[in-house]
Design a protein around this nucleic acid. Structure first.
Lengths: 144, 144
DNA sequence: ACATATTAGTTGTTTTTGTAACTAACAAGC
DNA sequence: GCTTGTTAGTTACAAAAACAACTAATATGT
């Protein structure tokens, strides 16, 4: 405990990241949780399908960097909520294309709009330059 | 899906924050998990005691913004690992002062040093200005 | 053609978390 | 002094995440 001078926890980047991420997550989950009873993974799967078009569960795993079990369960949940349907591909029956239903598309449009609003509100407090640096640094740390 | 133009998921700050935090967490957990078999909350509790001195579980809850049940379990786990002891206060027997043992202090010194190294390595890729902006933005978002 | 390996996806089991209900100790009002 | 309220901390139970083992379909090597 001698040479380890004064290293405050608020100087520790992983801690700052965790706290900031947690705060943002808790605030935004209001929208998909209370309004649609969705879990975070469900919201992400919905977003991917809505934004990037129909794809298989595997595609979502790769793009969203989610584990296949998480996606599998999120897909089932979204299906139970009638937000998507599955279509088995003929040439390879292991693949199922996931398609948003009318209701799924509506939920996506709503939540996506809220997300944009939320994002704007978050960056509001910063200058354009700061927001740009923040995004760039985060993208780099996240190895996206 | 019409007016909701092109809002990429990588433009969504909560997503970026979650991915960056996850990445940092996974990388750093190597130290406390593989070396000491600790969970993240245990590492945080250990850090607080090592850095800010003996205190009660309640103090840690407040400082670290952790729920009391999480802290309670982390304290038990650290006690089982012989990293801390509890001392009931005489004037108020509800309070227990948590004290790191010799082994606990050693683990703290080690992990704290690793944390500093890790933090430096993380910010290495950025300019001083960028790192400063990043920390300031995160601190603000985390409402610390 | 057939054994072996891969791939997409699901299911089951174990950890970890979150939430609520609980105990024990103290404080305050009257 | 005794009811009521508050605080520190634990425990029990439910929700969610992590991990491993599994099925079914296809691909590959010989």
């Amino acid at each position: 405990m001698s040479e380890t001078t004064d290293f405050d926890i608020k100087d520790f980047l992983p801690y700052l990241l965790a706290q900031a991420a947690e705060q943002a997550s808790v605030e935004f989950q209001h929208f998909y949780k209370t309004k649609y009873g969705m879990l975070r993974t469900e919201w992400r799967v919905l977003f991917h399908l809505g934004r990037y078009g129909d794809m298989t569960a595997k595609d979502i795993c790769d793009r969203a960097r989610l584990h296949k079990t998480k996606v599998s369960r999120a897909v089932s949940a979204l299906q139970n909520k009638r937000f998507l349907t599955r279509e088995q591909q003929e040439k390879d029956r292991r693949h199922e294309t996931l398609c948003l239903t009318r209701a799924g598309l509506r939920a996506y449009a709503d939540l996506s709009a809220e997300a944009q609003k939320f994002d704007r509100k978050m960056t509001d407090g910063f200058t354009a330059k700061e927001a740009e640096v923040l995004r760039r640094c985060l993208t780099r740390i996240a190895v996206l």
